[in-house]
Every structure is written in structure tokens, then in C-alpha cells.
């Protein structure tokens, strides 16, 4: 579903040019669980932003589901994001002082799903991440970190995207909670067939994926199938 050819990203700041990404070439098939691993500053966030249609590449071609979207406008990209892509962030980014269920329904608001259909979709997503039903009406800021990340995953799933990006999803969680969040992502990949792209700097976390792309100084240094997939 994803095909990248020679993707590059150069940031210009006055006369300084910073190469954040160069010559990234790889493809991702439907249903894959892929980790992009690298130390901070390696360009993995830049790659995720481009793959997640939050940013445009400076060069190369990015073909998503057969369409070259390198030259799409900001609003056209937003339109694809709403239909095909879900995001899970390190810092959760839930709407504060807003109930769990409303947080999960947020993407449906922008997708234009009628009001009557939203709640059922949001409940299904919360069930899929095994979020306890008695906390659906709680406000997001009353939750623990692990619960917040589950809500964020449910939000990423609510519009049934084919592609889910998880940017350091365990970065703000303790090891135990992190493991549970990773298990939840694994389950979604195995059971519902969502393609998941995990961005992390920890090899421990990358170990949950089937395939690990290692990136360093803006270039891909290895692209390996993970033979020892973590199981929980």
C-alpha cells in the first residue's frame, strides 16, 4: 500500500540546509506491522510526518494506494488522513476536560459522520482496545497514562483507517503499561488487519513489530524481518 522511492526532506533556514531525510526507498504491504527505529535526530519523525501526510517530501515519490500524493495540497492531504490514517502520539494529545467518548468521536466530526452514527462507532473502537466501559464518560484528564493512550488508540481506530501511525506510543508510560499498550496494538494488527507503523528509538519496543527499518542520519541503514517477535 505504501511505496517510497528516493524520498528526501531538506529544511532550509536562511543559508543553512539541513538534510533530514535522503534517499529513503522501501515499500509497505497491507497488514504489515512495521517499526521505524533510530536515535533522536535520525530523521524517523520526518519520515513519519511524510508517510502520515502531515508533511510533504522535498524530493522523491510517495505512492499511497497507487496514487502519487507528493504534490497534493494541504486540504487534499487532510482529506486522505481523515479516511485512511490514524495517529497515536507519545503525549496522547487528548482534548482536555472532554469525555472519553467525545474524544474518540472527534475524527468522526471531521469526517462528517452523522451525529446518530458516531456513538456506536466510538463504542466499538473503545471495546476493541478493551477500555473499561464504566469510564467512557470520564473526563480525559481524570485518566491514568495507560488509559489515556488506550483512548488515543481508540480515537486513531474510530474511522477504521487502513494505516495507523504510533509515534513513541510508550514514551510517557512505565514499562508495564507500555507493554499492555504494545499488546493492544499487536492485537489490532493481528485480528483486525490494520497496517501499523511504529516509530521508536527503543529496540525493545521495536521488537513487537514484524519488520524493523533502522534509520540513521536521514538514511535507511537496515530493513530486516524480525525473527524474534515479542510476545506477551
Amino acid at each position: 500500500m505504501i511505496e517510497c522511492r528516493n524520498l528526501s526532506k531538506i529544511y532550509r533556514n536562511g543559508d543553512n540546509e539541513t538534510v533530514a531525510l535522503s534517499g529513503a526507498t522501501f515499500s509497505v504491504v497491507d497488514g504489515e506491522f512495521l517499526a521505524i527505529m533510530g536515535p533522536s535526530g535520525s530523521g524517523k519523525s520526518t519520515l513519519m510526518n511524510i508517510l502520515g501526510l502531515l508533511d510533504s517530501p522535498s524530493g522523491g515519490r510517495y505512492i499511497l494506494d497507487g496514487k502519487d500524493i507528493s504534490k497534493y495540497s494541504e486540504d487534499e492531504l487532510a482529506d486522505i488522513r481523515i479516511r485512511k490514517i490514524g495517529f497515536v502520539f507519545q503525549s496522547f494529545n487528548l482534548l482536555p476536560r472532554t469525555s472519553v467518548i467525545r474524544n474518540v468521536m472527534l475524527p468522526l466530526v471531521y469526517e462528517g459522520v452523522p451525529r446518530s452514527g458516531r456513538r456506536a462507532l466510538a463504542e466499538a473502537a473503545l471495546r476493541a482496545v478493551e477500555f473499561p466501559e464504566d469510564r467512557w464518560e470520564h473526563l480525559s484528564n481524570q485518566l491514568s497514562g495507560g488509559q489515556m493512550q488506550r483512548v488515543a488508540i481508540a480515537r486513531a481506530l474510530v474511522n477504521n483507517p487502513s494505516l495507523v501511525f504510533a509515534d513513541e506510543p510508550t514514551g510517557n508510560l512505565d514499562t508495564k503499561t507500555g507493554e499492555r499498550v504494545m499488546a493492544a496494538l499487536r492485537k489490532l494488527n493481528r485480528e483486525k488487519g490494520h497496517t501499523i507503523i511504529l516509530i521508536t528509538h527503543e529496540s525493545e519496543i521495536a521488537g513487537y513489530a514484524d519488520r524493523i527499518i533502522t534509520i540513521r542520519d536521514g538514511g535507511i541503514v537496515s530493513d530486516l524481518q524480525n525473527t524474534a517477535v515479542h510476545t506477551v
Binding site: 488522513r81 479516511r83 482534548l95 472527534l106 471531521y110
Partner: peptide, 16 residues
């Protein structure tokens, strides 16, 4: 700002 960023990442358009 962060909330706006999130809304946009999710798929909110400029006009939204």
C-alpha cells in the same frame, strides 16, 4: 495550539 495541531493531524481542514 496543540489541540489545533491534533485536530489538523486527525484530518480537520483549514476551513474547519
Amino acid at each position: 495550539t496543540r489541540e489545533i495541531g491534533l485536530r489538523k493531524a486527525i484530518g480537520a481542514k483549514r476551513r474547519d
